[in-house]
Design a protein around this nucleic acid. Structure first.
Length: 403
DNA sequence: AAACCCGACT
């Protein structure tokens, strides 16, 4: 059997590796409660909906008065330190949910209060951690405390409601934004379009988009187009998506890495991998640089056709461009080699990723177990589940089988 | 200074 994964080749090419930060905090998203607003400074939307998604702040912690936080800052960070910390965390998220909440509590007790920028950064960090209901709860607290919010914080809250599949609340928050005298901007409307599409309501999304243009409420930007192109493609409206792609250029909106990555991923899923490779060529010619997501889509597409040589060529191209493969890249390879019975290649990839400091996750081991099972080596699969995963503290997932 | 869009296993 052909050895597809050339470890030696990858070893000879030092890759820059990024370490993904794990978030171990587990919070029930459906843990909502009723909030009766009698406070006049509270955002009017909450009084009208009378129903707020929220979270018990210390749900991962049995004792709320002794937060489970090992966060490394002094009890009262200087203003400069606070700013620096929030700037950093807004990009990566906090390691633990409690770290964010403890900091939020400290911010509320500072005199003078930190500005809305700092609170917005805290919200951004919570969004990075996918703690949407916590973010909504924090946003509500900010409103209740009378801290003057702005359009950006409102946009963040609207985005959180969309991720919680509560587009209805997102739209009532839009009403609240307008009532407060803010002008919803292109981000507000793009967020709502994303929400409608993820709710499987592309018709409403399209209507909103055309009305926004017709009434000149916003000028769609590249993110607006990317959102809609992705939504159209995922719902098998490939032709409309391509039309929109060409239309945006005509309107003077230059496609970016995300636009091309979206198109490339969708073409790969339609098994049009050579067309996808053509787009990779087109974007690089235009000076738009692909990223690890672009390559992951293409590698997946090529794996579906067992084009191992082309896969290795892309991996080497990533090297020359200094784009590091991440856990997902390796997971694609583990899955593809496993499905072809190339279990030695699978084992090589896993050994290699560990050497590179990329931690195999539940997806890696699920794909590995699948690979063993397909060869009838159920005992080895069980050993992965009961020994390797247990040792690494990886909790197996459960997927119901539908007949 | 802060917000919106793209990728892996069942």
């Amino acid at each position: 059997m052909m050895r597809a994964f050339s470890v030696s080749f990858l070893r000879s090419n030092p890759l820059l590796l990024s370490h993904s930060s794990g978030n171990s905090a587990v919070v029930a998203l459906d843990n909502h409660y009723y909030y009766n607003s009698s406070s006049s400074c509270c955002c009017c939307v909450f009084t009208s909906t009378f129903h707020v998604y929220a979270i018990s702040h210390f749900s991962t912690n049995p004792n709320p008065f002794k937060p489970n936080s090992t966060f490394p800052y002094s009890s009262d960070p200087t203003h400069a330190r606070l700013k620096q910390l929030l700037l950093e965390k807004s990009k990566t998220g906090f390691d633990k949910l409690d770290d964010a909440l403890v900091l939020f509590d400290k911010m509320l007790h500072r005199k003078p209060l930190p500005s809305i920028f700092q609170f917005a950064q805290l919200l951004a960090a919570l969004v990075k951690m996918k703690q949407y209901s916590v973010a909504v709860s924090v946003f509500r607290d900010i409103c209740v405390k009378g801290i003057p919010v702005d359009i950006v914080t409102f946009n963040t809250a609207i985005n959180c409601f969309c991720h919680l599949n509560r587009v209805d609340y997102a739209f009532s928050l839009l009403a609240g934004t307008i009532k407060r005298g803010f002008h919803p901007d292109v981000v507000t409307y793009t967020t709502l379009i994303t929400g409608l599409i993820s709710q499987d309501n592309p018709a409403e999304a399209q209507l909103l988009f055309t009305n926004l243009i017709r009434f000149k409420l916003i000028q769609p930007n590249v993110v607006t187009y990317n959102t809609i192109i992705n939504g159209l493609y995922k719902r098998a409206h490939a032709c409309t998506a391509v039309t929109l792609f060409r239309y945006m250029e005509k309107k003077g909106c230059q496609p970016d890495t995300v636009t091309y990555s979206t198109l490339i991923d969708c073409l790969c899923k339609l098994r049009l991998v050579d067309q996808a490779l053509g787009l990779l060529h087109e974007m690089t010619k235009k000076g738009i640089t692909p990223n690890v997501i672009t390559y992951n889509s293409l590698i997946q597409g090529l794996c579906d056709f067992n084009r191992w040589q082309d896969v290795n060529q892309l991996l080497s191209e990533m090297n020359t461009r200094n784009i590091s493969p991440n856990v997902r890249t390796f997971n694609i390879l583990v899955d593809a080699y496993g499905k072809e019975g190339m279990i030695n290649d699978v084992e090589d990839v896993i050994e290699f990723m560990i050497q590179r400091g990329q931690h195999p996750d539940v997806v890696t081991y699920s794909a590995l177990m699948d690979g063993y099972c397909l060869r009838g080596e159920v005992d080895k699969a069980l050993a992965v589940l009961e020994t390797t995963m247990k040792k690494r503290g990886i909790v197996p997932t459960f997927v119901p089988i539908i007949f």
